[in-house]
Design a binder for these strands. Structure first.
Lengths: 64, 64
DNA sequence: ACATTATGTCAATTATCTTTTACATATTGG
DNA sequence: CCAATATGTAAAAGATAATTGACATAATGT
């Protein structure tokens, strides 16, 4: 399933997928794949994304 | 660096590394490596561990 | 209308997470 | 003292995260 919270948080910072990818040191396709879902990124990448977007892991990646 | 919060949370549930590994469907070495640190597990594994230990991502894996 | 940026997606390759097998030490209970 | 459990660690192989390059379609602004 899609990660719409990530997409929204990125939009709130007015960052493109490319800009976020550059900021956290991965490729644009990786960010796109995470937002698209059916993907399993590493915890360090998730943490880097959270810090760039001023969020926490629970806010962007926790699922009940 | 070591993940002592994970080690403590596991101890609080009285689970061995093997028991936690079985519960989340990975090998004992993987749990050991995560606790040992210098390791980068996937977010899905982190979530599975958190749910097994009744914690959240922020509680076990967030780092300021 | 045009150029530019942003996004979606795919195939092939590289990097790395995870397993398997194995051996070692420490600890606990009988 | 002995058997069983728990933990730490390592090398090789398997599974998958992530990169690279490419092509396509929307969206945006001039």
């Amino acid at each position: 399933m899609k990660n719409l919270r990530l997409k929204a948080a990125r939009a709130a910072k007015d960052l493109s997928q490319q800009a976020l990818a550059d900021a956290v040191g991965v490729s644009r396709q990786t960010i796109n794949a995470i937002e698209k879902g059916d993907y399993n990124p590493t915890i360090r990448l998730c943490i880097a994304i959270c810090k760039e977007l001023d969020c926490t892991l629970d806010q962007l990646f926790w699922e009940e």
